[in-house]
Design a protein around this nucleic acid. Sequence first.
DNA 1: GCCAACGTTGGC
DNA 2: GCCAACGTTGGC
Length: 152
Amino acid sequence: MAYWLIKSEPEEFSIDDLRACPRGTEHWDGVRNYQARNYMRDEMKKGDQIFFYHSNCKAPGIVGIARVAREAYPDHTAFDPEDPHYDAKSDPQKPTWCMVDVKFVRTLRRNITLAELKADPALEGLALVRKGNRLSVMPVSEDHWKHILDME
DNA sequence: GCCAACGTTGGC
DNA sequence: GCCAACGTTGGC
């Protein structure tokens, strides 16, 4: 089993929004970064666990846990000119972008903030705290996963 | 709102 | 294939 972290702006789609979805499940569309796509397409497996991270907000941090409910399939929002993530270059016959389904597992008892994650020497190397990191989908090692749960 | 860091685009 | 310009991300 692999572990992941996905970012979302709570103003756009929060952990509570995910919980409120039917069966707590939603497709993770709109990823338009190749490295993030490759993680989803090539490595995310059903059942993998995911930290749900709130970005671009007052207290950025890890707020919940989800898991992969469906492995990668084409992101249809790339074909919709009305969609903010429309990509004219993505051919429906050979889609550029994909998405997975994620399912709500639980909220953390508290927000484990980015400031805390950065301050903890045990989390050195965690992709999230690397300088200039802008990936919206990234792997988390098992050691880091367990350590973060201990912090909770 | 500012701006550093980064990815993408496109001219050459 | 280089690299400057530009757009986006996201913390602060």
